[in-house]
């Protein structure tokens, strides 16, 4: 069978050359240097988990995310620039979640106890927070994917799953807050009002911009080659990574609260 002729209107997929590799190596070097500094200036007060630990976790996870997400999305078939944008976007999410977010939780909890109607353990509250915030992240990624889609349903991603997710998530959040704990809502308030709020806002803005850029590049390529399925696959890969990040976050914070439990009150 004859080979398919090359498409002159579609840029061939860029191979991983020296320049992108240098960028990735540069990012790894900066991350390693930052990690070394953070570990050297550890604050070990003993009563709350050291912020340096969260900073170190954020840096390590962002480096892993950079490599893993770039490799995974590149393998699916997106252009190299989009794959690197996905990787960098998820690196920013890792810094927001594992670095700033976790710090905000414990700093906020120092000022204000968590309302714990159902008498959950610290671990239980972490699971509630992780699930609720995870749903928000999934909704955000799906919203970006829908906004920049190359084709409407049934080929491209639709809004219906997002609406269903928001309705189910909203009801679950309300029921949980009423009968179990307000941990998820309070975490969001801590993340938006504390000292770490600026860091979280910047990191999430960078993440959203990069992920949007990546979806845009992917959509353009999908339109050019006429395979919308590639775009949908990339959207699912992004959501899979969001879920993996949240499971990791839950596991990490469960280990942390085993040593430094959250302060909570059970109203009579």
């Amino acid at each position: 069978m004859a080979a398919q002729p090359a498409r002159p209107d579609v840029r061939s997929r860029t191979r991983m050359g020296v320049e992108p590799l240098l960028w990735i190596l540069g990012a790894l070097a900066v991350g390693a240097a930052a990690l070394t500094i953070v570990v050297r200036v550890q604050d070990r007060s003993g009563h709350v988990p050291p912020s340096s630990m969260f900073a170190a976790a954020g840096i390590v996870l962002s480096l892993i995310a950079m490599l893993a997400v770039t490799a995974a999305t590149y393998r699916v078939g997106v252009p190299l620039r989009a794959a690197i944008a996905f990787g960098a976007g998820f690196a920013a999410i890792a810094i927001a979640k594992f670095g700033f977010g976790a710090t905000a939780l414990f700093q906020g909890n120092r000022r204000e106890d968590i309302q714990n109607v159902g008498g959950l353990t610290s671990g239980g509250m972490i699971v509630v927070i992780g699930v609720a915030v995870g749903l928000l992240y999934v909704a955000a990624v799906w919203l970006l994917a829908v906004s920049l889609r190359p084709a409407p349903p049934p080929d491209g991603p639709g809004l219906k799953p997002l609406l269903a997710l928001l309705v189910v998530g909203g009801v679950a959040a309300a029921v949980t807050a009423f009968f179990a704990t307000t941990a998820a809502l309070q975490y969001i308030v801590f993340a938006m009002t504390g000292l770490e709020a600026t860091g979280i806002a910047v990191a999430l803005f960078v993440a959203a911009t990069l992920v949007a850029l990546a979806f845009n590049d992917t959509a353009r390529r999908a339109r050019a080659v006429g395979t919308v399925s590639m775009y949908v696959t990339v959207a699912w890969v992004a959501i899979a990574f969001v879920l993996v990040f949240h499971v990791l976050w839950i596991v990490f914070l469960l280990a942390v609260v085993a040593l430094w439990p959250l302060r909570s009150v059970t109203p009579k």
Partner: peptide, 10 residues
């Protein structure tokens, strides 16, 4: 109890 919770999730 906290360690059990972590292992439960894992």
């Amino acid at each position: 109890a906290q360690a059990s919770m972590l292992v439960g999730v894992l």
